[in-house]
Every structure is written in structure tokens, then in C-alpha cells.
Simulated assay, not measured.
Amino acid sequence: MKFLKLILDFYLNSSIHVALSCYALVQITFHVFHIQYDNAMAMFAFFGTIVGYNFVKYDALVRVKRKLIGNQLKIIAVLSFISLFLVGYYFFHLKRITQIVSVVIFFITALYTLPFFPNRRNARNWAGVKIYIVAICWVGTTLVLPLINAGIPFSSDFFIKCIQRFVLVFVLVLVFEIIDLANDDPHLQTVPQTIGVKRTKVLGLLLLIPFWVLEVFVSTFNYHDVLINLIMVLMLMLFIAFANPTRSKYYTSFWVESVPVFWWLMILLF
């Protein structure tokens, strides 16, 4: 049992799980816009998420706090370097315009982590900004890049899906912020710190209504997608309702981050 826990912790701590969620959202984009599977795009998003998330999570730990690197962190560092190499490999298989937009997303991620301005904290520590940067990066990686690389022009469906994807990630981050309330720096001014846990839950539940209703306005409207989205909305509502600061880290780092994977699996099954 200890060994299995070690494997699970490594799987989560190395950001493989969140990368799988990113991969799932890219696959959902392929499905929604009828794009033929693009391995370079999907793998670029997958390995890019591993690199980006590990950089964000462990940069401050090693560079700023100068903590000793344990064995697990050494393995994660090796995995991140391999992933970085693969990101570079798949990057050169993307279209030029996709490469340019992906570099912009990379700089937003770097801004989130590194203090570019003298005597200023990084964007991750800017009051109230974190949740928006995370949502924008996910929309860019899982929706904008696949469409640009497929050469699909922006339409009303694209903008509807951008809003939906932004709302989805925003709501998922709200659950994380509720769980992390006790550990987050008060200066971050996360949504639960600003308006309280109860109101944050109400906000998350209310945001899921337009997320689902917008599906009706998509030109490729079909009942299967509407039903699948409804199931996912109900699942998210339960995660929001039962979220509290005393929950285990696995509640968010495994179960909540699995929502995009469940969504993708439902599409495959139905």
C-alpha cells in the first residue's frame, strides 16, 4: 500500500495527472470542431503542461527557498527535462503561427512565476490575478492553439467555446482555492479569501449555469454533447458543494483535476 501511495504521489507531484487533463481538453477541442487527431499538437500540450506546472511549482522551492532536493524531486527534474526536450521536438512540428502564439502563452506562464519587474513579486502573488492567468493559459493551450494549428477560422462557436472553457477552468480553480484557503498567503486575495467560502461556492454554482446554457447556441448543437455537458456540470456542482479547507489534497489534485478526463471519456463512450 505504501508503494502504491508513493507511485500516486509521484504521478500527482510530477504533474502527469494535470497534463493528462490538458490532453483530454485538447481531444475535446478536436471533437467539438471536427479536427482530425493532431499528435504534434496533443503531445505539445501534454509535455508542455508537465514542464510549465513543474516550473511553477518547484522554481520558488529550489531557486528562492533553496530547499534541499529530495530523491522524488530529482526524478521530477529529470522527467521535466525530458518533457522539455519533447516540447521542443513537437514545437517544430507546429505551424509558424501556432509557434508564435505558444511563445506568448509561455511568456504569460513565465510572468506567473518569475519576477520580471524590480522589487515586484511575480504574477502568481499579485492580489486577485492568479485565477485569471491560469484560466487564460488553459484556454490558450487547449482551445486556441489546436484551432490555429488546424487552420480553422475563428467563428461564433470559437468564442462560445472560449467562454465555456474559461468558466470551466475558473470554477475548477475556485475549488482549489477553497481547499487551499488555510495555506494560501492572505495577500493573494483569492476568491474565498475575499468573499468567503459560502459565497465562492454560490459563485461557482452560478457560473456553471451559463456554461451549460451556452451549449445551445453552438452551431454544431447536438443532444449528446448537451447531455454530456449536463452530467459534467452536475459532477462539478457536487465537487463545489463538498469542498472545504479540511479536505485531503487528493480531493483536488486527483479527483477535481480528473473532471476533463471524465468529460473526454464520456464523449468517447457516447
Rank of each mutant, 00 (worst) to 15 (best):
N122P: 14
N183P: 02
K95S: 10
F91I: 04
Q189G: 00
K95I: 05
A150L: 12
N122Q: 07
L208R: 01
G88R: 04
Q164D: 05
Q27P: 02
E177H: 08
L174Y: 00
V197M: 01
L206E: 02
I76L: 03
F10E: 09
F262M: 06
F46W: 09
T246S: 09
W264Y: 14
A135R: 01
F270G: 14
A45D: 08
I231K: 03
A127F: 04
N222I: 07
A77P: 05
I100P: 03
N13I: 08
I82P: 07
G70V: 02
I163H: 04
S253F: 08
G52C: 08
V175Y: 01
N222K: 13
V202N: 04
Y223W: 15
R120M: 12
H224N: 14
E177M: 00
A243V: 02
S248I: 03
W138C: 05
I133D: 07
A127Q: 10
P210F: 02
W255P: 04
L168V: 06
F242E: 11
L114W: 12
F33L: 07
N13G: 13
S21P: 01
F106Q: 07
P115I: 04
K249T: 11
F254I: 02
D38H: 14
Q193C: 01
D185Q: 01
Q189C: 04
T49Q: 06
H93Y: 15
T98A: 15
Y37C: 06
I82S: 11
T220L: 02
A150M: 11
V62C: 05
F159L: 13
M41D: 03
R124C: 10
K5C: 12
W263E: 06
F117N: 02
F176V: 00
Y58D: 03
A42N: 15
V216W: 12
F158G: 02
F91H: 09
L111F: 15
D59S: 15
P115L: 06
V104K: 12
F55I: 11
K130R: 15
T142W: 10
G140C: 08
T113I: 06
V261W: 06
R121N: 13
Y58I: 06
Q164I: 08
T29S: 14
V26N: 08
A40L: 09
C22D: 07
H34M: 11
G48N: 04
I7L: 15
I240W: 09
I69P: 07
Y112H: 09
L168S: 08
R66G: 02
T190L: 01
I7W: 13
T220N: 08
N119Y: 13
V87C: 13
I28K: 08
V101G: 05
P210I: 01
V18R: 03
G196T: 00
G88S: 03
Y23H: 13
L73D: 10
H31F: 15
K198T: 10
F107N: 09
N183E: 10
V226R: 06
A150I: 12
V169D: 02
P115C: 07
S80Q: 15
T220G: 03
L230R: 03
Q193M: 05
I35N: 09
F116H: 11
I148E: 05
V233W: 01
D59L: 13
A241N: 08
C22R: 00
S80R: 06
M232L: 14
D180V: 00
A243P: 02
D225S: 11
T200K: 01
T113V: 12
Q193T: 00
P115K: 08
Y90W: 14
D9T: 15
A40K: 09
I152Y: 10
L168P: 04
A45R: 11
K201A: 00
I148C: 04
